[in-house]
Amino acid sequence: MTVMRDTVVKSLAKVTVQGDENGLIPEYEVLVNLLPVALLNSFAERIMAAAPPERKAEVEAGLVRAAYECGYHTGCGIITSESFNEAVMPMVTEGAKDILRGAYAAFTAWGWAKAGIVQLKEGERMVIRAFDYYEADSGGEGLRAYMFRGLSQAFFDLAYADPYPDGMDTYVCQQTKGLEVGDPYGEFIVTKK
């Protein structure tokens, strides 16, 4: 047995991701903002367009960093939640690898990205393929799935790096293909920094 994606999606899709009176998703105790994806994409596009050429890499790193911070804390909330414990943990037989499978199934369940693991060398490298993600239809130039890069890096840190806070930034995620540039899917590779 390993984590079955469809089972996880069916279970987690029932969880409400609306914020409570404090703006938190009760299940994960993380802040939720129900804003359109277009807002993030538009912000990213404009800030990148406004950056001078010599600072574009820095701005891009900032966008990925923002996603990383979000992904690290939300990811931690997800994999330690009761619903994850009930839906995913009984199927975990391959440790961190299965937890990552479950995490990407959770991504899909909430419509954040339709993505999954293609290759995984434990603690060293992971290749992910995504058929839909925030920036898939965004404006701008080049590969620009900042959100997905940050989230994937965060998930790998949570799975294989030291516990918070020492384990943060152990890994880095690069994008090699993107729907936004006409590729048939987005491809992301996480490796040690």
């Binding site: 994606r5 499978r101 693991i117």
Partner: peptide, 9 residues
């Protein structure tokens, strides 16, 4: 297909 049922290609 991945072992988790994710259709890779």
């Amino acid at each position: 297909v991945g072992r988790d049922g994710f259709v890779i290609d």
